[in-house]
Design a protein around this nucleic acid. Sequence first.
DNA 1: CGAGTGATGTCAGAAACTGTCATAGCAGCA
DNA 2: TGCTGCTATGACAGTTTCTGACATCACTCG
Lengths: 191, 191
Amino acid sequence: MPRWPTDSRARLVDAALGLFGEHGYAATTIDEIAARAGVTARTFFRHFGDKEEVLFSDDDSLMPHLITTILEPTGQVSAEQLMNRALTSLAQAMQPEREALRARQRIVDTEVSLTGRELAKQARWQQAVTEALIERGFPAEHADVLSAIGFALFVRSLHTWLADDDGPDLVTRVQDALPRVRTVLDVVSTR
Amino acid sequence: MPRWPTDSRARLVDAALGLFGEHGYAATTIDEIAARAGVTARTFFRHFGDKEEVLFSDDDSLMPHLITTILEPTGQVSAEQLMNRALTSLAQAMQPEREALRARQRIVDTEVSLTGRELAKQARWQQAVTEALIERGFPAEHADVLSAIGFALFVRSLHTWLADDDGPDLVTRVQDALPRVRTVLDVVSTR
DNA sequence: CGAGTGATGTCAGAAACTGTCATAGCAGCA
DNA sequence: TGCTGCTATGACAGTTTCTGACATCACTCG
């Protein structure tokens, strides 16, 4: 029998998400989170560098998935084909988690600093994708713009999918958005 | 004669930028900033909501400039033409500030939280631009993608311009990047 | 059985932030 | 001139986040 119950980290995540949902992010203290998880505040900071990180430590698992999809050797592909494959695969992986993602997004949207942290994480993903595209054989000056556009499309689709109660699913939204890049520069204003 | 010297806010900004540059962002305390500015820490927090804000309170002046350019009634224009005008105008406004921007960027790049804050501010700008595009007569579903692409291009150009010691100026970089969006989806990987 | 390891607790403390009240120039007005 | 309110600031106490240092004790490996 171990001296302490195992899985402190998981219990801290649960406690934090629960309390953030109940009382808001700013209104819950580390002491409260630690108490609900049955540990001390010091243990919280051993698992998470700061209060925000408890909201962002989980979803790192999707990143390798995305990179693998991009690097998968499938012969010559156009950027559009590859982007379609990668974004579809990511969307499929996220789709079952809709409710959890929604709860998390509700919390993130209440604090500018959390939004910033999310965007900083996205920027790191985007950088990793750019490097993968270069390794896959795309010229560097295109890889950069490609991953920027891909992320812009994906994030926009994700947010509307989480916000809308109904409407198309995430995969459909992503696949619909992609071809529009091709013509968007030619749209003309009405005044 | 006023009871205190005027311009506390400006002196706080100067003190903060100086100390951040000399000792780093994390290593300088609010007390040190306040002392150099000749005020107390409480006064710092009256002018800036938190330690980070002293780095971000200034450049809000460029936003109205950008929005005005977009809303300027110039008859029917394509998205590409308008984006070219808006980004060029913004680049021209920023170009003379290169050294100040560089110093600030050096500081921002040392801390993830500062990067996040910068990205969050960019996201607010992007939202404002999207709304301006809609008011200008672009359909909502395109305005969103347009501003996302525009910002991606501009930020990339800005960062390389600040990082490179020589090479083309910001306006040139921005104008070179824009037409590439049109073809980027057709680029083919070499393996 | 003894040495090391790893996750935790305990404690002290720095630094970031907040609420509250006091102070003293200054501006407007009778 | 004198009164009144306003505003920027100081003073101070308190909370919360985060860090460093050291102790504890079940578990494991030899």
